[in-house]
Nucleic acid binder design. Structure first.
Lengths: 169, 169
DNA sequence: CCAGGGTAGTTGGATGTCCGAGATTTCGTC
DNA sequence: GACGAAATCTCGGACATCCAACTACCCTGG
């Protein structure tokens, strides 16, 4: 997880002080964005660690969950990119690896020959169930927050996503 | 920025409904972590876009800001990794590129020959000032939130970071 | 009907991140 | 003083992500 040595102080709060002392503007914005970056860094490391026994990364796990939730366990790759907010080439890469692991297979679209459907396999179903147990058991490493606080966090980030055009709201 | 097509609905809220309907556990945790991942994805795309004219990425920009804030504009590479929560190899990579751009130079540590100091150049100082104007002018793309909401967000993520051992608190 | 524009996915190249392993240097202990 | 452990940085490999360009296919207008 990057550095093994935790700092004795809050690097973000420190950066904010320096930022403000130079009148660089928008310190609250800077602190919030940096906090989000750090939190993502921390969480992805923890989740990836929990997923390592299954030879999965968070990106591939997320794709599996999405397929697992879909009807017939299949979805056009483009739709997956929309849902996961990934570039088409990233989807290609992820499906390549999941297919090598026999967790997903590519099948042709019945009517549109441009489209490729990714379909979760029986192995995929089993792995995603087990992996989800592992992921939820670490509680996402956010037990420092209550469920109420997590909901407030999610709500604040929802507003951010709406403002950024992630979805209409 | 990944998909160009915004979804007509909230993919995270939808995932949470499916998650809950299958009794997978910890839905608030799942929603919060996924929200953080999405927010990071959105923000890094916006910031990188703003930094493109300076041929910088957020990672390199953050390193430059850190050096800019440091005394004598220099820091051992290991310390930079601690502050930025980056693996030593990532720091090497970033300094490699900044050095190619003449924004940073490597100098030997005066007493410890193991240590390499990264020092910001005059070009580096100028670029980081200009780049900061560009970054703050986009307001980090989070104008959907008030300053008060941004502070609440930062505070919630601070608790998360403390719980994860990012710093003692 | 067919020509052109739009859509879907892949390929190749660049960047950034991590891990494992190695070289060099420093420090602690006997 | 010397040996072994620890610290610092770099190198090679793996993975994920993006962009630009390409192929294959669909569909609409004239």
């Amino acid at each position: 997880m990057g550095s093994q040595r935790p700092l004795p102080f809050d690097a973000i709060a420190e950066a904010r002080r320096q930022w403000e002392s130079r009148d660089w503007g928008a310190p609250a914005h800077m602190a919030a964005i940096t906090s989000i970056m750090r939190a993502q860094q921390i969480l992805i490391a923890e989740v990836d660690e929990a997923l390592k026994p299954f030879d999965l990364t968070f990106a591939r796990y997320e794709a599996l969950v999405l397929l697992n939730f879909s009807r017939h366990g299949e979805l056009p790759m483009g739709k997956m990119g929309d849902r996961l907010m990934l570039h088409p080439t990233s989807v290609t890469n992820i499906i390549d690896r999941l297919e090598q692991q026999d967790l997903v297979r590519r099948i042709p679209h019945p009517t549109d020959r441009r489209t490729v459907l990714a379909q979760i396999t029986e192995d995929g179903h089993q792995v995603v169930e087990k992996a989800t147990e592992a992921v939820t058991s670490i509680r996402f490493g956010v037990d420092g927050l209550t469920v109420d606080e997590l909901d407030r966090l999610t709500e604040l980030l929802r507003k951010l996503r709406i403002a950024a055009g992630d979805f209409p709201g």
